[in-house]
Design a protein around this nucleic acid. Structure first.
Length: 579
RNA sequence: GCGCUCGUAGCUCAACGGAUAGAGCAUUUGACUUCGGAUCAAAGGGUUGGGGGUUCAAGUCCCUCCGAGCGCGCCA
């Protein structure tokens, strides 16, 4: 355990228990970072009333019995009854060494590792990936990486939209355009034009509509030739998706695809099992479940439609099948859905029904990791100038191009290969970081200039801090690993500030995981980079006054760089050694 | 009509219910013979949409009003 705040927390809690006895049960004795000292404790204010004392009296008593003299150089009662703690530098140095010696840099493993299924990305076959998929993909990828980092078993599932009524129309269009031509069109990623052409025909031609409907029936009844054509569509699209994922540098692989069609065999079972549980009701010819607490616009109970009037299934059925599959086949105890906010009610209903049916019993849980829209400068959904949705691959290409221009300008002496590689890392990092660094629940405004800026809370600023550290070692020709056992001494204020920051990696990452909110880790890494930049200005490393100081600072630099690289790493962002 | 989410500095965003609401951009002012200036140091800028309430303590929780976005039966 490296984070001093986590470390001292137990001792403070013990002191509160000793002072408050029964009254202290349930009182929040958490220790938090503070700008007035290293850490602050607020529990006395909550406890005072129950004990009939003033908060300051409680705080004083807590400090009398708290066993913190070995780790705190100062502990004071302040203001209305806060306790301010200052850690002693020997303690910090010891924790730095402990952090440096661990390959997880002081981050605690999950006390009870879970099996987690995470549903994210979910593009549609024969439809272009756009910025909405970017959010799901990037947030999902970051969560996958950090959940694995702390020791959970994570199953990635890409719930591709590969089934349903649109496929009648798509297959008929495929037949019309000829397989070779269609495959060419799809393989170069021109998915939207294929979809649009099909849609246009469907809207304009009644005979085509009839063919499309008939084709849906053939598809669902398992007609061989229809399935072959369907598979062609799916294969071309997923090949394209994988290409985007590789470009984007996310962990999703072809084997992670669990499309809607994968649950087809389970759909009749969903109906059957709900029927046996007496949960199904026939309403307007459809088989539905009325989940408690959901009403429609007439204030009537709102149904979850399990089987349509025409006998077909829809997405609610398929989502319930997913829950069954994830719980019963995969034995998952946490189901994460990285899906946009508009689906909130739908997912709540699915969860409610799954619980009622007994398929999702505590402590198993289903969590909607919801996110807002990507907006353009006009505050509306991001669109191209012509009003189309922004294609993901075009957006990524532009990011790398813009980064390349910046790299060439700042660092013209680099080789072309190095420039290209750095441009890729910086450009993609900027796009991902822009997405991850704001609270996912809110909409965010997409702005090239801001995300690629080297000032402020951006990927390039963090990457630059990392590159600068690498540069120190490169210049002095010192092996990074060779300084890791050095014993640090903290003397300068900026040095101490950086040390404190480095040690908070553990709690920052856990805070992020607990809330499924990557922006919290981003904020931490930004603060870390800022602390380093300030340290860098004020504390010479290679030209330190003594060898001890130099070694100490080298050790701190290496640790900072490792935290930065690892932190960016679990966000799915690379940290180049030079840029 | 009902429901969900959001509203914080001119702009873009932070802030487990904790003290004096913090950053970046923009504006103003400093710092390059010193490890990468893609940087650092500093200043000004706020009735946290309005009004009630709960609490020792509210941007945060509850109620209400205003504004924005999104949902609300056979598309996914």
């Amino acid at each position: 355990m490296a984070d001093p705040i986590v470390y001292v927390e137990q001792r403070i809690a013990a002191a509160f228990a000793k002072v408050g006895g029964a009254a202290a049960v349930g009182v929040d004795t958490a220790v938090r970072a503070s700008d007035r000292a290293d850490a602050q404790v607020n529990g006395s204010l909550a406890l005072a009333k129950a004990m009939g004392l003033t908060p300051r009296e409680v705080a004083t008593k807590v400090l009398e019995v708290a066993e913190i003299k070995d780790i705190c150089s100062d502990a004071q009662v302040a203001g209305p009854g806060f306790i301010n703690l200052t850690f002693n530098n020997q303690f910090l140095a010891r924790e730095l060494m402990s952090s440096s010696a661990s390959d997880k840099l002081g981050v605690r493993d999950a006390t009870k590792p879970r099996k987690i299924v995470i549903d994210y990305s979910a593009p549609n076959v024969a439809k272009e990936m756009h910025v909405g998929h970017l959010r799901s993909t990037v947030i999902g990828d970051a969560l996958v990486r950090m959940l694995m980092f702390v020791g959970n078993t994570v199953v990635r599932e890409n719930h591709v939209g590969d089934w349903g009524t649109p496929f009648g129309m798509l297959i008929e269009h495929l037949v019309d355009s000829g397989e070779t031509h269609a495959a060419n069109e799809l393989s170069v990623g021109d998915l939207d034009s294929f979809y649009r052409s099909a849609r246009k025909k469907f809207d304009e031609s009644e005979p085509f509509q009839a063919r499309a409907r008939a084709r849906v029936v053939l598809l669902q009844s398992g007609d061989k030739e229809t399935l072959r054509l369907w598979k062609l569509l799916v294969a071309e699209s997923t090949r394209y998706f994988q290409m985007i994922y590789r470009t984007l540098g996310v962990l999703l692989e072809g084997t992670d695809i669990m499309g809607e069609s994968a649950y087809n065999a389970l759909l009749p079972q969903v109906v059957e099992r709900l029927g046996k549980l007496k949960m199904l009701t026939t309403s307007d010819g459809a088989e539905v479940v009325f989940a408690e607490g959901f009403v429609n616009r007439e204030n009537q109970p709102l149904p979850l439609i399990i089987r349509k009037t025409d006998g077909g299934y829809n997405y609610a059925t398929s989502d319930l099948a997913c829950v069954i599959d994830r719980v019963e086949r995969l034995n998952a105890d946490l189901l994460l859905y990285v899906v946009g906010a508009p689906q909130s009610q739908h997912l709540q209903m699915v969860a409610a029904v799954a619980k009622q049916a007994g398929w999702l019993q505590a402590p198993r849980e289903m969590v909607h990791v919801s996110f807002g829209n990507v907006l353009g400068a006009d505050k509306k959904m991001l669109k191209t100038r012509s009003g189309d949705t922004v294609k993901l691959d075009a957006l990524l290409t532009e990011a790398v191009e813009r980064a390349a221009a910046a790299v060439s300008e700042k660092n013209p002496e680099l080789s072309d290969a190095a420039k290209a590689d750095i441009a890729r890392i910086v450009g993609l990092g900027a796009v991902k970081y822009a997405d991850l660094s704001t609270d996912r629940i809110k909409d965010y405004t997409f702005d090239w200039d801001r995300m690629l800026s080297f000032d402020g809370n951006t990927a390039p600023y963090l990457q630059y801090a990392h590159a600068r550290i690498c540069s120190i070692f490169r210049r002095a020709n010192i092996e990074r690993a060779s300084v890791r056992n050095f014993s640090p001494t903290i003397s300068h204020a900026a040095e101490r500030d950086l040390a404190m920051r480095v040690l908070q990696f553990d709690s920052a990452l856990w805070d992020t995981i607990d809330k499924y909110s990557p922006h919290r880790l981003c904020t931490y890494l930004y603060d870390l980079a800022a602390s380093f930049s300030s340290f860098y200005e004020q504390c010479p490393v290679l030209k330190a006054e003594t060898e001890t100081e130099r070694d100490s600072r080298l050790m701190l630099c290496d640790l900072t760089a490792r935290v930065m690289q690892t932190g960016l790493g679990v966000l799915g962002i690379e940290a180049p050694e030079q840029m």
